[in-house]
Amino acid sequence: MNIFRLLGDLSHLLAIIVLLLKIWKTRSCAGISGKSQILFAIVYTSRYLDLVTTYISAYNTFMKLIFVVAAYATVYLMYIKFKATYDHNHDTFRMEFLVIPSLILALLINHELTVLEVLWTFSIYLESVAILPQLFLVSKTGEAESITSHYLFALGSYRGLYLLNWVYRYYAEDHYDLIAIVAGLVQTVLYCDFFYLYITKVLKGKKLQLPA
């Protein structure tokens, strides 16, 4: 564990809590993409299957459980409890366009052709693009509430911090995983446009509104 990874995990945890609290407190999931949330539930389910096969640490197990449970809780709140507030007219990104290519790529490029390993790789590829329906939703409506922006900033920062963690681990531990690194780079690059708007607008107290 190094500081970048810890900050990355905490940033991820913060993002999840912010999103759940926002939905719970406002009794609404307006502006949130249910498609992205379903994709995240798929991501964490397929990645953390090793919960039953490999023990790494209490921290690792605890965080994995939190991420899986929170992903399903979010999907439940959006599609069942606060279904009436779900913005499905704008949330039109096709999930299969991300799931199918990620699965094919995982079958082609992986560390080992076993079920668990391919599913782990699939989850890494899918996570890198899972935010696209959310970014698509924001671009369609042309704006995002501040709290949604904070959620996206924390979620985007998480993989960015992991990139620093991988640089650190490369030098300090001689450890690197190209699949995770390349996917992490893609994932972070997808947020760049959003990061720019967040820093130039939201942090100055303005609403995130896209130029017409």
């Binding site: 990874r5 995990d9 991820h12 090793d50 790494i56 690792n60 560390h111 450890h175 995983d177 995770a180």
Partner: peptide
């Protein structure tokens, strides 16, 4: 194995 080390992250 190598995989234990590879997948020690979240």
């Amino acid at each position: 194995t190598i995989f234990d080390k590879l997948h020690d992250e979240l």
